[in-house]
Every structure is written in C-alpha cells, then in structure tokens.
C-alpha cells in the first residue's frame, strides 16, 4: 500500500517507459537525482556553511573573499582538494584502504533511498523502510573500521576502536527509541509514519498542531537527538576523530580525493541523521505554506545547524565517560521509554 507514487514510477511514467526498462531507467534516474541533491547540499554544508556557522559562534567572519558571501569558496575548495596528491602510506592494507572512503558516503546515500522528502520525492517505500534506513546508516561504521584497520597507523586504530565502541553503545538506544515511534505509528513504512503524524493533535487559537511525535513524546525526541549526535560523531561525542587527542583518528592517513570522500560521507551522514529524525519525529516533509521538499530541507539543515552548535559550544567527553553514558544512561532510558510507550499505546489506543 503506497500512499503516493514513488519517484522512479513517476519518472518512468513521464518518459512513457513500461515494464523492466521503465523500472531500471526510472530507478537509475531517480537515484541519480537524489544522490545529486544530497551532494549539492553537502557541497554547501562542508566548505561553506560549516565555516560560516562556526565563525558566527566564535565571533569571526570566515570566508567572504571569493564570490558573494564567499560562496565560490565551494568551487575553489573542490579544485584545491581534488588537485592534491593522494598519498598512499607504506604498509596500508589494500584494497580495504581504497574501498573504505567509498563505503562511508555510499552507505549514507543509500539510507536516503527510503526517506520521503515531500512532493513525491522518495525512491522506494518498502514495508521495512525504517529498518532499511538504520541498516544502511550503520554500514558507515564498517567503513570507519576499514579505514582504521587498513591505515596501518596507531592513531587510526584507536579512532576505529572508539568508533566501534560508540556505535555499539549508541546504536541500540537509537533504534530502541525509534521503535517507540513505530509502536505509535503501527508501521515501519516511512510514508505511513509520516502520514500518521499529519493528523491534528490539538487546536490552539485556530492553529492546529499536528501529531508530530516530537510533540507527542518529546522525551523520545530528546533521546533520539542525543543518540543521533553520537551516531554522526559530533561534539560532545566526537571521540572517534578527536583531533586534539588522536589526530583525527580514523582519517589521519587519508588525503586528497579519499579525504574528500570521507569528509563528504560524514556530512551526508549528518544529513541522513537529520532526515531520519525529521521523518520520525517532525512530520517528515510536512509543514505549512511552503512545499514539502522545502520543509524537508529546512528540517535537515536545522539538524545540521544543531550539530555545529554542539560542536562549537560543548566539550568532548572522555571515552570511558562517553560509553558509561551510553550503556548506563541512554540504554536504560530508551528501554524505559519503549516500555512506557507500549503500555500507553496498549491502554489508550
């Protein structure tokens, strides 16, 4: 039961193609479109928005020389980074060392396949959409382990170990918290989760507040956002990178194109985290006046802004404290949330 035609069908319909050919062409064109939308967003986020945002927090101006508001820095940075020498250190474990920079952005992009972005932009809408999104996102940890192990560098190794530890500790609360939403929505299908949230919760002075799960269960939302910060590795949980401790951890040995790919992957990952949070808790692409896709973009950028804010203002935890919070705090709270939600839903609904 799909509420709306997914993007590949729309494309093949427009092109007048049918059958397998229509599926293949529609799927490829759709994937190409979505991947490019995300890459463009990352291009804005990485070289430009990140600098501007952190500069604003630190009372600075940042890039403003090339193009309006320094926007052409995106182009010059791309040229700069791509024209650098790709240094392959002695003793790296190939091909793992070469594959890892591809695994990281690829896994994050894959997650977007099931995210409804509004205006019918959604590549696929399987029944297990949410599970797919989490599965795809967590492949990135595999990439990080590959980078850390294959780099033949002790700092990278420590970084990779930290990444694994943090992923295990925080992925469980993340998924369990998401499960509480699934109990509400009664489905793992992304489009249905969004549809359920469109119903009005209550009306205050003519303004209707929808049943976004962030309003229904703010506690779960907070848990999810915290676990998500850990998942995308930003302060106070940026311990896999921790430049002042382990010199950028797993990415120490990467340069040039490979570095760009890892960097890109991290940003897409932040956006994916924002997209999942928006879909589960903020009504997906829903919002007044503006078209759905614009709202969706605003929401994931809001999450990006939040990660940058945390990065500028919050100290990093020590690795043992970080794991302690994960296992003793987040895990317990997320299960409590799940059980409570289940009871409430069971009694009321």
């Amino acid at each position: 039961m799909s509420l709306q035609a997914v993007l590949p069908d729309t494309i093949s319909g427009l092109l007048g193609l049918e059958g397998i050919l229509g599926d293949v062409v529609g799927g490829l064109v759709g994937a190409f479109l979505i991947a490019n939308i995300m890459l463009i967003m990352t291009a804005f986020a990485g070289p430009w928005a990140k600098r501007k945002i952190t500069a604003a927090f630190g009372d600075r101006i940042a890039v403003n020389r090339i193009g309006p508001f320094g926007l052409l820095t995106i182009v010059t940075d791309a040229v700069r980074l791509l024209s650098k020498e790709l240094i392959v250190p002695e003793g790296v474990d190939r091909p793992a060392w070469d594959l890892a920079p591809m695994v990281i952005p690829f896994s994050a992009l894959l997650g977007f396949a099931v995210i409804p972005m509004g205006n019918g932009i959604q590549l696929a809408d399987p029944e297990t959409g949410l599970a797919f999104a989490f599965a795809a996102a967590s492949i990135a940890s595999l990439g990080i382990v590959m980078t850390g192990y294959a780099s033949n560098n002790k700092f990278s190794l420590i970084g990779a170990l930290r990444a694994v530890a943090s992923n295990i500790a925080y992925e469980i609360p993340l998924v369990v918290t998401a499960a509480s939403v699934v109990i509400f929505a009664g489905s793992l299908r992304m489009s249905e989760i969004v549809a359920v949230q469109a119903e009005p919760l209550l009306s205050v002075a003519g303004v209707t507040i929808p049943t976004w799960f962030a309003f229904v269960n703010p506690f779960a939302f907070a848990l999810f956002i915290i676990a998500n910060l850990a998942e995308v590795g930003r302060n106070p949980f940026d311990i896999p990178e921790a430049p002042t401790e382990i010199v950028a951890g797993f990415q120490t040995e990467y340069s040039s194109v490979y570095f760009v790919l890892i960097y890109l992957g991290e940003f897409i990952h932040i956006f994916l985290g924002g997209a999942i949070a928006a879909t589960l808790f903020l009504g997906g692409p829903a919002g007044p006046v503006l078209p759905g896709f614009v709202w969706f973009t605003i929401k994931i950028w809001a999450f990006f802004l939040f990660t940058q804010w945390a990065r500028s203002a919050i100290p990093r935890l020590r690795v043992d404290q970080f794991l302690e919070i994960g296992w003793k705090g987040m895990l317990v709270l997320s299960f409590a949330n799940l059980v409570l939600t289940a009871i409430i839903v069971g009694v009321i609904v």
Binding site: T54, T244, S312, P315, R316
Partner: peptide, 18 residues
C-alpha cells in the same frame, strides 16, 4: 586548554583570542 578539551576551534578559544 579549552581547545584541548573541546576539540577544534571552538567558541571559547575564539573568545579568549578576541
């Protein structure tokens, strides 16, 4: 010191420099 504990060029480092 804040830089070492926070990581990266965070707000407090810039404030101190300012």
């Amino acid at each position: 010191f804040a830089l070492d504990v926070y990581g990266d060029f965070t707000a407090i480092f810039m404030y101190a420099m300012r």
